[in-house]
Simulated scan of single mutants.
Amino acid sequence: MDLLTVPQVMARLQLGRTAVYDLIRTRQLASITLGRARRIPTPALADFIHTRLEEEAAA
């Protein structure tokens, strides 16, 4: 399992730093802390995207 940095997630989702940290803060995007570094597991990012796609399809 790969761990992504916040800037990597920002690039993949094409969102700003604040938006990514808001997703983490509201627990929409799972993350772990290693020391002072925040990392997002690739499966967590895939789950987030999948959930959003399902929500869009249901709307």
Score class of each variant (00 low, 15 high):
Gly16Glu: 04
Thr42Cys: 05
Leu23Asn: 03
Met1Pro: 01
Ile32Glu: 13
Gly16Thr: 07
Thr42Glu: 15
Leu15Ile: 12
Ala30Val: 09
Ile49Val: 15
Leu34Glu: 10
Phe48Leu: 12
Val6Ala: 02
Ala11His: 10
Gln8Cys: 04
Leu29Asn: 01
Gln8Pro: 04
Glu56Cys: 11
Leu4Thr: 02
Leu3Lys: 02
Val6Gln: 00
Pro7Gln: 05
Asp2Leu: 05
Ile49Glu: 07
Gln8Tyr: 02
Arg27Tyr: 05
Tyr21Glu: 05
Thr51Ile: 08
Leu23Glu: 08
Thr5Gln: 03
Thr33Gln: 14
Thr42Tyr: 03
Gly16Leu: 06
Thr26Ile: 01
Val20Asn: 00
Ile40Lys: 01
Pro43Val: 10
Arg27Trp: 05
Ala58Met: 11
Leu29Ile: 07
Thr33Ser: 13
Tyr21Gln: 08
Met1His: 04
Ala30Arg: 12
Ala19Pro: 01
Pro43Asn: 09
Leu34Lys: 07
Ile32His: 04
Ser31Tyr: 03
Glu54Pro: 01
Ala37Lys: 12
Arg52Leu: 14
Leu45Glu: 00
Arg25Tyr: 02
Thr26Tyr: 10
His50Tyr: 12
Asp2Gln: 09
Arg12Val: 05
Val6Thr: 10
Arg39His: 07
Pro41Arg: 09
Met10Lys: 13
Tyr21Pro: 00
Glu56Phe: 13
Met10Ser: 05
Ser31Pro: 03
Ile24His: 00
Arg39Ala: 07
Asp2Phe: 03
Ala37His: 13
Gln14Thr: 15
Arg39Ile: 02
Thr42Ala: 14
Ala57His: 12
Tyr21Ser: 02
Leu3Asp: 00
Ala46Thr: 13
Arg52Tyr: 05
Phe48Trp: 12
Arg52Asn: 14
Arg27Leu: 09
Glu55Cys: 07
Ala19Thr: 14
Ile32Tyr: 06
Arg38Ala: 06
Ile40Trp: 00
Pro41Ala: 11
His50Leu: 15
Leu53Ile: 14
Ile49Trp: 06
Leu53Arg: 15
Gln8Glu: 15
Gly35Lys: 02
Arg38Phe: 03
Tyr21Asn: 11
Arg17Ser: 09
Thr26Lys: 06
Ala46His: 08
Leu29Val: 10
Gln8Asn: 05
Leu45Asn: 00
Thr51Trp: 09
Met10Phe: 08
Ile24Ser: 03
Leu3Met: 05
Leu23Ser: 04
Arg38Cys: 11
Thr51Ala: 14
Asp47Gly: 06
Arg38Val: 15
Leu13Asp: 02
Ile40Asp: 02
Ala46Phe: 03
Gln14Tyr: 04
Thr18Glu: 06
Arg36Glu: 10
Arg52Trp: 11
Gly16Cys: 07
Gly35Pro: 09
Arg17Thr: 08
Tyr21Phe: 14
Met1Cys: 03
Thr5Leu: 06
Met10Leu: 04
Gln14Pro: 00
Thr42Gly: 00
Thr33Phe: 04
Pro43Gly: 10
Val20Ala: 00
Ala44Phe: 01
Ile40Cys: 04
Leu13Met: 10
Met10His: 01
Ala30Leu: 07
Ile32Leu: 12
Ala57Pro: 04
Leu4Gln: 01
Asp2Arg: 12
Ser31Glu: 03
Ala46Asp: 15
Glu55Ala: 15
Arg27His: 13
Phe48Met: 06
Leu53Cys: 12
Ala59Tyr: 11
Gly35Val: 06
Ile49Asp: 03
Ala58Gln: 14
Leu13Ile: 10
Met10Asn: 06
Ala37Asp: 11
Thr51Tyr: 07
Leu53Thr: 11
